[in-house]
Design a protein around this nucleic acid. Structure first.
Lengths: 200, 200
DNA sequence: AGCATAGTGGAGCACCTGCTCCAGAAGCGT
DNA sequence: ACGCTTCTGGAGCAGGTGCTCCACTATGCT
């Protein structure tokens, strides 16, 4: 019926990803994106509606990939709580080994920087769905370790699964390679924090 | 001889600090800074030369404060390497307890975001001096723990003293209060990473 | 009193941003 | 062949940015 697309939306997302990883959000302008992707200003806005939506969609694509991998890894780890949390924390390193770009994007942009007012409701819903998906995993882990998933327990799991990996892996993910020793450090740190128990 | 200052440079730095902590770097515009500090555009540029220099100077002021405190804490910890590293890692929490704003500023802006091309040579030199001062502390700690301060040893100390505190404390520093339990977690994680040893 | 000097205020410039707008192109069904 | 629809390209707008520029002010020295 209509005129077919010349520029696949995925190609625009790829270009956005490159710019975000290589130069950061501030350098991702409409003009830079148009130049790198080959799509014109008009095409980009026709397909996405706003720049923020492009960022959101690019992040969403990768975050889904990550959460799938993390869920699989957690399921594989079995019922030993500490091991399961260690596995979840190691997921970013695995992602980096398999799809470096994905890990670089997810660790370069925080979730808060992605879900702004300007993103299309469609993508915004996707991002919010991601939040609850991650929370599900965190709660599952909390129950596996302590048999409860209240705020305190989930807080500790979050520290292990989100904050510690960010801290220890981020420089190496940016650099392009995660050393085995760093993964050992992460596992040790996670075990220590888990053994530290819940806040009183 | 000349006309005396109406606006103390420190007042401008205070205003910049507030804006940076409350709203982030992107919201720190010349106009916002002028409005909050009371100094005019002209005064700000006469005193600092560029906006980046204001940011750099504000950061520098606080970073010096932090490094002094950290050095003192390390010196106090004595010759037990692991304890010394734990003390150094705990320094941000102490800073937050004493001068919340300082910790909030230092943890909100990364060092790389501060030292850009646009900062005055004077402030840029100060920032670079800070790098070597921090490196001194890191090397001291590395020697205390392993008796060597090569890249590998300093790398592990950096993970303990820079990355782990950033990861675990940042959300609470932003929120305004660091819980004792979080400091325990940090100490445990640091011990675990230290005990993990050097990369092969 | 007059001068030199450092500081002040703010108008305005050049630039860049996200985004809008719309004439036209490219396909499809008829 | 014609219209219907979606997609494309790019000119251009409104607004915000860092920064420059310069007339002016307030002081201390002579």
């Amino acid at each position: 019926m209509p005129r077919p697309r010349v520029h696949a939306p995925d190609a625009v997302l790829d270009a956005a990803e490159e710019l975000l990883v290589e130069q950061g959000r501030a350098q991702l302008t409409v003009r830079a994106l148009a130049a790198r992707s080959g799509a014109s200003n008009g095409s980009i806005y026709h397909a996405f509606g706003s720049l923020e939506t492009v960022v959101g969609a690019a992040w969403l694509r990768r975050a889904r990939q990550f959460l799938d991998l993390q869920r699989a890894v957690v399921a594989e780890a079995g019922r030993d709580g500490r091991r399961a949390v260690q596995a979840a924390a190691d997921a970013p390193a695995r992602l980096a080994a398999r799809e470096l770009r994905a890990a670089q994007l997810l660790f370069r942009l925080q979730r808060d920087e992605v879900l702004t007012e300007a993103v299309t409701p469609e993508v915004a819903d996707g991002l919010r769905a991601l939040d609850t998906a991650l929370l599900d995993t965190l709660q599952l882990l909390a129950r596996t370790v302590w048999g409860r998933d209240d705020g305190a327990a989930v807080g500790v799991v979050t520290a292990c699964v989100v904050r510690l990996p960010t801290a220890l892996l981020l420089p190496e993910i940016r650099a392009g390679r995660v050393r085995p020793h760093t993964r050992s450090q992460l596992a040790a740190a996670v075990a220590a924090v888990v053994d530290c128990g819940l806040p009183s």
